[in-house]
Amino acid sequence: MTIQFNDETFRDDFSFKNSPAAIKRFPFPFHEDSYMYSVNLEPHTKTRPGSPFEFAFDVDEHYVSEMKDRAVTLADDPLRCQSLPHMTLAGWDLLEYIMEAKARDYPDLFSLTKDGNIWHWENKPLEIDQTFIFLDESTLPYGPMEYITRQTQGDFALLDQRDDNLWLDAGMITSQADWSLDFNVGMNFFEWHAPVPKANEMGIFVRALKFLLNLQQGAPARRLNWTMTVNPLLDTSPENYHKWGPMKTGLTIENIGSKQYLRVELQTLFRLPRSNAIAFPIRAYLCRFEDLMTVPKWGRRLHRVLRDIPDELATYKGFIDNKPLMLEYLSRFDDGAPTSDGIWPDEA
């Protein structure tokens, strides 16, 4: 296999680690030295071979461990995966989309063969070999959405489209930035975004929704979002906030470089053909400050972005208390030199 999968954890001893290659391809979210919410949507087309934007669904060295972590979270709290009854067809859509994409983009890891409605799926990294009847739930161990998202990195929301709105009617959410699927299931675009500061007044949600309602088959879109996490935790759910919250208070100038992570979400949007629903994968990438600082451009830029970020955003994203410490650490990596446009490291 071309990818060496790490054996690592996202809880307890937190043995998660990025290889140098993973750091280099990290989707750093800031294309300039400042940050504000915007309708930052662009076509999700094949870009930059080797980057997380190369394929529809990125598979990387964390794949196997992330899937193990998801299984643990689900065993503990099955409500992290829910699908209202009318979303089953969208679940099959998603399964079909992912299986076809992965078999096409990673033929050495995944294969899909079809004999009419009898499908044969092989997932080599997870050692799964499944024959099933497409559209027949009784032939899979889980519902179609749960089945495929237990084998695909990132959280997933499936949105039903009706009454000129999108409805969060199904999802697999085990690595979220502090929002509850169980609570949000059934909400519309404006309702589930209600807690976000500023963006509504800026007209961002109205414009983003208009764009999404017209999202077309064969023309997916993507955007990046980010937050801060202490320790490489995937499960930063509100459900478990009383368990991970205390970790946020243990930072010092000595340990912040290794304990503070920038958490980036690559969010993609696909129109699903059979159900007319939209799939919204939210793929999280974690990188600790220390590793980010190996790219001088990122060190300079992260310092400037955090220095100038409005308090409302820092509060909403949950790092306002640690911001002074972050700036103290990051300022050492900002010599005031100009930075180049775009998110990628400068070529040596």
């Binding site: 059934g186 209600a194 807690p195 509100p238 906030y241 009383h242 919250g245 205390p246 946020k248």
Partner: peptide, 19 residues
Amino acid sequence: HYSRRMAAFQGVCIDAEDP
């Protein structure tokens, strides 16, 4: 923050970071 499906507002731990 309110959920129609729960017919309830959301309660979140207030002393999570500083029990």
